[in-house]
Design a protein around this nucleic acid. Sequence first.
DNA 1: TCTGGGGTCCTCAAACTC
DNA 2: TCTGGAGTTTGAGGACCC
Length: 423
Amino acid sequence: MGRSQLQRGGVDRGGRFGPDADDTGCAVLHVDMDAFFASVEVRRRPELRGKPVIVGGVGPRGVVSAASYQAREYGVHSAMPGARARRLCPHAVFLPPDFAAYSEASRAVMSIFHDVTPLVEPLSLDEAFLDVAGCRRRLGSAGQVAKLIRRRIADEQGLTASVGVAATKFVAKLASTQAKPDGLAVVPAAETLDFLHPLPVSALWGVGERTAETLRRLGLRTVADIAHTPVTSLRSALGNAAGSHVHELSWGRDPRRVTPEAVDKSIGAETTFDVDIDDSATLRTTMLALAGKTAARLRRVGLVGRTVVIKVRFADFRTVTRSRTLASPTDVTREVFDTAWALYEALRPGERIRLIGVRAENLLPAGQASLQPQLGAPEQGWREADRAADAARARFGSAAVTPASLLPQTDGGGSAAPGEPGD
DNA sequence: TCTGGGGTCCTCAAACTC
DNA sequence: TCTGGAGTTTGAGGACCC
């Protein structure tokens, strides 16, 4: 999903880069499910087949999470505000996201990948890289493996996927975008630059709206333009890392391997209020719920965080963050909340607030961390309370344990209701 | 047009350490 | 003892991705 609409054209899907192109030297597959969330909804409600279906965009400030190809014909795409999507396609079926269903479908698709190779690197629920170099004797060339995977996903899951086959991750990803929907594109290793150079700069990974505008001001419009610009000029325009990065990609150089296990760098939760608020009690209650959700997720995956970050977005969409690094890492709701709230109190914005968020960074495995209570703080008691609450929730459901301060109140204010508070 | 929620990575400045 | 410089850590912000 995402940017698929912006880099079409110029590629001959049936010929040079079609499903039967020469796949010598290609070992990387990028598999991307087509309109995944919308397709899962259509699969369980066949009466929606052929209709514009939009997942997300249902609340007053919601945005589109996924749109079926019928909805995309009206210009609807992901990340578009729901109100705009409704104007463009008023007869579309709008559905709230059901992440449990999408996760289940994702697990089924990923298990097909794991039947093929252990070298699977998921990027999100609906896409993954696969290294199929070791499959040749058992299953055939990369192109043949791609066809097999597409067929199994269709037969066993009733869903369609697009697959890109190339020598590198980055080119495989571009190829799958070109193949959409329900297609297969193979970029022969020897023809990588012919594939790459006509594409717009925005096709490059890491080039978003801002960077594309900077490059446009330099007169750089295509990947070929970037390739033929001195890397020093790119570095001075974009910064060292980004300048070198786009220059390397423009020559098809991408040394990253397919790496199966990714380590979490941060875990957090945030919520946007239906209406901007300045009521301290609502903010505090919401912050407690977000801290609880964050700490519960840390405990579930066995991690602790050393740095607590809060994010505050004001009514005018300005966003600030504040962070504090603790003396020892934590997964205790109370400690996450106390730190987050202290950061908020120090900020004391005095403006109406649109969004707040809590995040834990500098993560490490709970087993490796020395979890020491702060001076004077009964942390052990809080940790035990968290564990008991986790156990109760596991047994009786997420609503089984709720801090008193999160029980329904009669005042108005925000409508945020993040799940899994902690205490 | 009016912008979600989950993240990663990079840059820069200031503080700190050696 | 003071000082400067280099390297590291922390904090904040921004761009980007799905």
